[in-house]
């Protein structure tokens, strides 16, 4: 996936600088212009391009209220953790990309030792849609997604 990077510095050069650096913060500061500086709304917009989807459909599949969903895509609203997970269902992401999506939103990753997260992980891994996931959470008396 392409981000806002300075193409004049090759990735291998950046890697060399990273390994040579004695201080990570110093490296990050000096090379800030060459690093991805993509925010969450840009990231999900790029996901749409990558998966050849439109935000409208993703929002619908994520069972997110329409206006709210578009605010997430245009960056005027920051999502809660549950909304990010719902978006993962909207994009039909696998577990790895769901965790990455949570990371991009600066939210805690799904944690398999917690029952609710384990249910969500199980459903994502089995390509189960959001409605069935909500049913499963309901049956197990766990808080439903989006209730935060």
């Amino acid at each position: 996936m392409s981000g806002k990077t300075d193409k004049s510095v090759m990735t291998s050069t950046l890697m060399h600088r990273l390994f040579k650096a004695s201080n990570l913060n110093e490296f990050l500061e000096k090379n800030a212009d060459h690093l991805y500086t993509i925010n969450f709304s840009e990231y999900i917009s790029q996901l749409c391009n990558e998966f050849d989807q439109v935000p409208e459909r993703v929002i619908k599949q994520a069972a997110i209220e329409r206006t709210y969903g578009h605010q997430l895509f245009n960056g005027t609203r920051k999502p809660s953790r549950d909304k990010v997970i719902q978006l993962a269902f909207g994009f039909e992401l696998d577990v790895e990309n769901t965790q990455k999506l949570l990371m991009m939103a600066d939210k805690s990753q799904l944690y398999p030792r917690i029952k609710r997260d384990a249910v969500i992980l199980y459903c994502i891994n089995h390509h189960i849609g959001i409605d069935d996931t909500q049913n499963m959470l309901y049956d197990l008396e766990e808080p439903l997604l989006g209730g935060d």
């Binding site: 953790r81 805690s108 917690i114 609710r116 997260d117 808080p143």
Partner: peptide, 13 residues
């Protein structure tokens, strides 16, 4: 209800 893991390491969660 356990909602999410905010942090975890060898000492606990």
């Amino acid at each position: 209800h356990l909602l999410e893991c905010l942090a975890c390491n060898a000492y606990g969660e």
